[in-house]
């Protein structure tokens, strides 16, 4: 890629919105809903607001049904015998075929808990890797001036544009020569090398949103880059780190291709590989068991989202492009 900086101009700052942000508020208290700016007083206004709220809720609940339909369908299907899943289009539960759960749990080489633990292991390591190394790389890109900064950043972005299918074979050969195929390392080590450019990019944006005066004040006090990063910026980045945690969790948990390529021993299989083992295009498939274990496996993902979303929203709130 040619990185010709002379041909393209940086976007000039638009003049329309001259509104100023108040100082940023990193504390969670700041995340209180904005008051409705509509009618301020009066009974009529209140009734109108109530009616409006009811309408909103009705619309939202309808949308929730549409959004959740697949999950409900999956749940109902996980409680049907295999033969009924595709011949019975109704979403009303007609049977409680719990055998899908008991069978699905033990149908493969190991109890399903093994795959849950393996996935968890990979996910936790991936999160740790992304948190540490992406934030470090982001600090360098956002706050330091160094040679080859532009090409380095450009290269980082190109890495997200290349389809995995053409680099997986060279990568596999690399890991194979290192003797690390059929271990979790090919899934974990890249995360400790900040290869997830998405998160680096996210954190670059975030750090650039933090006032530079903070660093400068610290530098005057004699702090080095390490101290500025660890003592000053990192604590302020908690929300961005939470965002990274949740997104890494979900993406790694659902990733199939890389895990399938690198893991060979069934004892090391992860949830996403195990779920495919119930289905075979040519012979019999255990759809009921697959749906049952799918339900089991989305529980951790949903839990982490519900508990993490407070930080998620907050994290991006202070990351916005600026």
């Amino acid at each position: 890629m040619k990185t010709d900086s002379t041909t393209l101009q940086a976007p000039p700052r638009a003049k329309t919105a001259r509104l100023r942000f108040p100082p940023r508020r990193p504390d969670p208290v700041a995340i209180t809903p904005a008051p409705t700016p509509a009618a301020k007083s009066g009974r009529r206004g209140q009734t109108r607001r109530r009616v409006l709220a009811v309408v909103k809720h009705v619309c939202l609940i309808l949308l929730v049904v549409v959004a959740l339909y697949p999950v409900i369908w999956m749940l109902v299907s996980s409680l049907r015998p295999d033969g009924q899943i595709f011949s019975n289009p109704s979403i009303i539960p007609t049977t409680l075929h719990w055998e899908n759960y008991t069978y699905g749990w033990t149908a493969l080489t190991k109890p399903f808990s093994t795959y849950l633990v393996n996935s968890l292991l990979v996910v936790v390591a991936a999160i740790a890797g992304n948190l540490i190394t992406c934030s470090m790389a982001a600090y360098a890109f956002a706050r330091l001036k160094f040679r080859f900064q532009k090409p380095a950043f450009a290269f980082m972005l190109v890495t997200i544009m290349i389809p995995i299918h053409v680099v997986i074979v060279p990568q596999y050969i690399l890991w194979s020569q290192l003797g690390l195929v059929n271990t979790f390392w090919p899934l974990i080590i890249p995360k400790f090398c900040a290869t997830d450019a998405f998160f680096t990019f996210l954190m670059v944006q975030f750090i650039r949103g933090l006032p530079k005066s903070l660093d400068e004040a610290a530098r005057i006090d004699g702090a080095g880059h390490g101290q500025i990063f660890f003592r000053i910026l990192l604590p302020l980045m908690t929300p961005a780190l939470a965002t990274t945690t949740i997104f890494t969790f979900i993406w790694t948990w659902n990733d199939f291709f890389a895990q399938m390529i690198y893991l060979t021993d069934p004892k090391l299989y992860t949830v996403s590989i195990a779920l495919r083992a119930y289905i075979d295009a040519q012979t019999s498939s255990s759809y009921g068991a697959m749906f049952a274990m799918s339900m089991v496996s989305i529980i951790p993902v949903v839990l982490i989202f519900i508990f993490g979303q407070k930080y998620l929203v907050q994290g991006i709130a202070t990351t916005g492009l600026k």
Partner: peptide, 20 residues
């Protein structure tokens, strides 16, 4: 080692390319 039909051939080709 086992897999489903589609991923089986992806992985086998990759394994051959990697010498495993």
């Amino acid at each position: 080692t086992y897999g489903d039909w589609t991923s089986y051939w992806e992985k086998l080709a990759t394994m051959v390319a990697g010498g495993n």
